[in-house]
Amino acid sequence: MSLRTMILKMSEGLGRTCAIFFLTLIISLPIGIVVALLRMSKNRIISNVFRFIISVLRGTPLMLQLLAVTYGPYYLFGFSVSRNKLIPVVIAFAINYASYFAEIYRGGIESMPVGQYEAAEALGYTKAQTFIRIIMPQVFKRILPSITNEIVTLVKDTSIAFTVSYQEMFTIGKQIANSQTSFTPFVVAGVFYFIFNAVVDFGMGKVEKKLDYYR
């Protein structure tokens, strides 16, 4: 197999890799905020429930969660396994990443000086207005480096979708590697991930620059 054919074949899987990547981000970034708020709820029960959920999701391998979401309903209740693997894969990725993002948000929110809340309160802002207009924009700037870290990890984690037979780029690479008894597809995969992350780094760097107008 020529290198060109190899790259073309793996590019087909790259679309699926991108699908995992973008859908996971689109879902988990906002859900993370909600989870962070519930985790910080003044209601002891709610906050403890979410503390527990987060610790389970962060304390077990994503791979296990992927298996549980994909095959768990079948083993436990005899439900059909989804033919479109993108659905369980994105669900598992999104809840896993939402719990990581939630902790990052929480750290960011808790690091905000109390004076910002007091100033907003004295000016008559409602809690929601304070959160949306005053707190979150500043939190985003603070947590951006940590978010970038997670996003870079997500790029590489997409290869775990292989566990549930989702035919993303790395799975196709493995297939080629097997049928060709060749190591080259792994090198190609490595280059793909590296380029992907270089783009992510570049994009996030732009965003960070954009938020650089204040301290």
Binding site: Y71, Y74, F79, S80, V81, S82, R83, K85, S165
Partner: peptide, 8 residues
């Protein structure tokens, strides 16, 4: 086999 059992 799980995929087969689960009709995937």
């Amino acid at each position: 086999f799980t995929e087969l059992g689960g009709n995937a």
